[in-house]
Design a protein around this nucleic acid. Structure first.
Lengths: 352, 352
DNA sequence: CATAACTTGGAGAGCGCTTTCCGAAGTGTT
DNA sequence: AACACTTCGGAAAGCGCTCTCCAAGTTATG
């Protein structure tokens, strides 16, 4: 058995600071100082204490410590969905989407090194939101990373009002003085527009996400603006909800209305996958008949056939940055609100 | 502003039980009883207390409560990777894989309804493991769901030794008296074997995962056994590490050694995607020249072209079940160790 | 040798909550 | 009217830890 698995000398009770103090023959305070590495402790006592710790197998109780220090070493990742119910299948879809995993991976890469744990929270109802904020004010977590799904989410405002250190991934829909890390979605859309026009497409359409999500909205306006600049005043648009099926449907709708489409910008890779299917069914070749540009550069982009030319969304980096921002904010609560905007790039593959 | 966002009457301090008691004109104990819904409280006092709660905007401090009740309302999801380092890129891959998200989604579907939060922990080193177990014994979390990646992981044993309620997703590599939820991986592999042989394949190969992972190993042995039963005593095998690239490489290797392969069973969908690419490059049509069966029925399976015939792995259900099992175990620590094995099914699509 | 200035360890007061123990009412029986 | 028996609310003892005092000891200075 490894050293760490040392069994206790029976007795249900775990050793406490008090026990260590007794064994070492000093006071609780002294043990506490040693454990927390505070200087001003006689080297000799110092060693006796560590011996006692080893003997008893003492491990500090984080809960008790947190109660007094008001620090938990935990950051909450809250997924805020304005009106979902517990049995809403949407959540299942959300977690299955690579988006979620990429965010978690990015966050953990930073938090893990700092020894901070991530607590996952999903809030949908008003009551859950209120409760979350209440817990947060009590220091249930040192800070929170917010992933806000719906259009107009009251949560960001509630958090800032409560003075909870928070960082959003993706900008808030309504202006709220909150830290956030975002992608220049409009620039990304422009990149796609430039590329499609550049390769000679005559009729370019777009498949967008829900219009009330800021990221989605920015992609629409950015794309339209850029297309207009290229002389295409009007862009056929069909919207989906970021799932593959919705992308397939949207593409069908587009094809039905505008049969000569020869280029399409799809607001995320998953929908692009669906659109690819619809195009194949309709007998259109990609990229020969219809060129396609996706968004996200998720694993779906390489998996697709043909592989997707797509706008790279450095989500892991963004998540990591938001974790760093949050940690800084926790360390120094007076830090002024800031935001970091990442620039997307176009990744060329086969679809356009 | 919503009712829940009620601001405090200034003053940094959040209202405590004591404050509520003062306002209501009763003792702390009474307030506690009311809050926790313990009967034996005069209806009149009951109401006064709730009024006071409303007036003060009181929210119980979970930390303080946990300290005394020894219950945290938190379950830890620990991802155990025997020898990764903080900068190991593997973790990034792991989180990006739909596997992780599906597990989280399944867990949350159950935990959320029970008002339990999920804390994510990643442990790689011996020290982290020891520390995790120490924290867990102190009731840092009420229980733990273990996702064990490496072959021989000491963590399950450490957890049972420490008496921490735990449930593994996927059986432990070494025999350990721990609850787990698993898939009948061998049966799944048999299903694939039967199908490939049934459609007339003459030379069937397999692309497997790492041999020291139990799930992966079961798929290999199950497949071999079933093929043997069909008269194919020997099966060409190439192994990957569950990523798309490794699947592509494995397929190339297989093709190089056994050019007449006309059927292949791939141990997960992601590798199947890679294998598909390799086959296309080699000019083989799927399923006409080579039939392929994947494993998992992840979103990659439908996204693939041709869509993958694959063994369905009901991961969400399994995760949900493990959450239920854990909750039961937490409620009743004397519950005997149990395991739940799910039966896979074959999902027919185009690749075989 | 007396005084000031600093170092070091211990006592003890909390952090906010639950819960046992008790005494004071209220109810029913003989 | 006296007794046992139940219901109910309050006092207070913790849960395990941190950290501010304060006293005692040590060294430097006039």
């Amino acid at each position: 058995m490894t050293a760490g698995t040392r069994r206790l000398p029976v007795g249900e009770r775990l050793p406490t600071l008090e026990d260590v103090a007794r064994v070492a023959g000093v006071s609780r305070a002294t043990v506490s100082r040693v454990i927390n590495g505070i200087r001003n402790v006689d080297p000799q006592l110092h060693e006796m204490v560590w011996n006692a710790v080893g003997q008893t197998g003492y491990v500090p109780n984080r809960l008790a410590r947190s109660l007094v220090t008001r620090r938990t070493g935990t950051v909450a990742l809250v997924v805020s969905d304005s009106e979902s119910h517990d049995d809403d299948p949407f959540m299942g879809r959300f977690f299955a989407d690579p988006y979620f995993g990429r965010v978690v991976g990015g966050l953990m890469s930073v938090l893990r090194a700092a020894g901070i744990q991530l607590a996952l929270q999903i809030v949908g109802t008003e009551e859950q939101r209120t409760r979350l904020v209440g817990d947060l004010r009590h220091g249930q977590a040192d800070g929170v990373i917010v992933l806000s799904l719906p259009g107009h989410d009251p949560l960001p405002r509630m958090l800032t009002d409560a003075g909870v250190p928070a960082v959003m991934i993706g900008r808030p829909a309504d202006p709220v003085p909150i830290n956030y890390v975002d992608l220049a979605n409009d620039t990304g859309a422009s990149l796609a527009a430039d590329h499609l026009v550049g390769r000679g497409c005559q009729l370019v359409a777009m498949i967008s996400g829900p219009a009330d999500v800021p990221a989605s909205n920015d992609r629409i306006t950015g794309f339209r603006r850029s297309m207009a600049r290229h002389g295409h005043a009007w862009v056929p648009l069909a919207s989906g909800n970021f799932t593959q099926e919705s992308g397939e449907q949207a593409m069908r709708a587009l094809l039905a209305e505008h049969s000569q489409v020869d280029g399409v910008f799809v607001a995320n890779d998953l929908m692009a996958l669906g659109a690819l299917l619809a195009l194949r069914d309709a007998g259109r070749r990609v990229p020969e008949d219809v060129a396609m540009v996706g968004f996200d550069d998720s694993s779906a982009a390489v998996a697709a056939n043909p592989a997707l030319t797509t706008v790279r969304h450095p989500l892991e980096d963004m998540a990591a940055e938001s974790a760093r921002l949050l940690m800084a904010r926790i360390e120094d609560p007076t830090m002024r609100i800031s935001s970091v905007i990442y620039e997307p790039t176009l990744v060329l593959r086969q679809s356009a």
